[in-house]
């Protein structure tokens, strides 16, 4: 086994240095120095970029401003500027309303997205590795069926899935949302391509000669080399589940099981009758986008790494 570890260490470091130039955006194509580019071009480019930034950021800015307002403030004051801002008090209202149901929805979302994405990543890693590293009859057939799964609208699956799940008593339980969330055909596709490109057969052969079992090899070598792709699959699936609305809407009727997306729409739907729900909806929306935005800004590097692998072969 020491031989195996040595081979692995040598290889994984080799693999990282080989892949790095692509995975690291900071080193991506060299920019000519400012002096080489005419001023006119720079001004034009930056104006277009700035206008686009305003378009993408204004709704987020509006949300941040409005989160500090009461329901009457929402209607009575200009939307893009503060009026009587009390962010802490407003958020406290959101969190404590209706026996802190919002906190429950938040934790539900975290559970669905966290557990679902982790399981989906592991399953996709194993399947992608199996498809890339073993030759067996029907391999391409299996892969093509999985690929077709990428193209099927998930909302077309949700209705029949609900009918099936209610037959076996799974509808309106945590499992109803968790189980479908654990399947990521796109993840399998990405993992297969990544494993085929970066896990060398010679290394696996060496490990087999050393007497390691297939599962051990997968755990110690495969998963480790595939880590960048796995982070990408996890992120994709996490955001996909966190943002998912149709599946929980179809599956769940008990509001204690709702994720945030479903909870907020139920508040928005009642706001006609209970005006303070306008304020809570805005505050809740603000809280709900915070964690994901931090996650996305912080991990941009990984989005890029995996996306390249996926799109190159599409």
């Amino acid at each position: 086994m020491t031989g195996l570890v040595r081979v692995r260490d040598r290889f994984t470091t080799g693999a990282t240095t080989r892949r790095d130039p692509r995975g690291d955006p900071r080193r991506a194509p060299r920019r000519p120095r400012p002096a080489e580019v005419p001023l006119r071009h720079r001004v034009l480019t930056c104006s277009v970029l700035a206008v686009a930034a305003i378009y993408f950021l204004v709704p987020v800015y509006w949300l941040t401003v409005s989160m500090t307002k009461s329901s009457s403030g929402l209607f009575g004051t200009f939307g893009l500027w503060f009026s009587d801002p009390r962010p802490i008090e407003r958020l406290h209202d959101v969190i404590t309303y209706d026996h802190a149901i919002y906190v429950r929805w938040f934790l539900n979302s975290a559970l669905y997205a966290g557990v679902g994405a982790a399981a989906a990543t592991l399953l996709a890693a194993a399947a992608g590795y199996g498809l890339a590293k073993f030759r067996f009859p029907g391999r391409e057939g299996v892969f093509n069926v999985v690929l077709a799964g990428v193209l099927i609208p998930s909302t077309a699956l949700a209705l029949p899935l609900y009918l099936l799940f209610s037959r076996i008593g799974l509808a309106n339980t945590y499992w109803a949302v968790l189980v479908p969330s654990m399947v990521s055909p796109f993840g399998v596709y990405l993992c297969r391509i990544y494993a085929a490109a970066s896990v060398p057969d010679t290394l696996l052969e060496a490990a087999r000669i050393d007497g390691a079992g297939e599962l051990t090899i997968f755990r110690t070598l495969g998963l480790r080399i595939m880590t960048p792709a796995l982070v990408t699959v996890f992120l994709f699936q996490f955001v996909h589940i966190w943002n998912n609305f149709f599946l929980p809407l179809v599956m769940l009727s008990d509001s204690d099981l709702y994720p945030i997306t479903l909870g907020l729409t139920s508040w928005q739907g009642y706001a006609d009758r209970q005006p303070q729900l306008y304020q809570y909806t805005v505050g809740g929306a603000f809280l709900s986008v915070l964690p994901l935005m931090v996650l996305m800004a912080a991990l941009q590097r990984y989005w890029r790494t995996g996306l390249t692998e996926g799109s190159l072969k599409a």
């Binding site: 950021l57 709704p59 509006w62 966190w242 997306t261 996650l295 800004a297």
Partner: peptide
């Protein structure tokens, strides 16, 4: 700029709709 453009992807579709609905 890149982060600014990418941020809306982290806003769930229903939340984006609620947000734009207010706008």
């Amino acid at each position: 700029f890149r982060t600014a453009y990418f941020l809306p992807y982290g806003v769930p579709g229903v939340v984006a709709s609620i947000l734009w609905g207010f706008l």
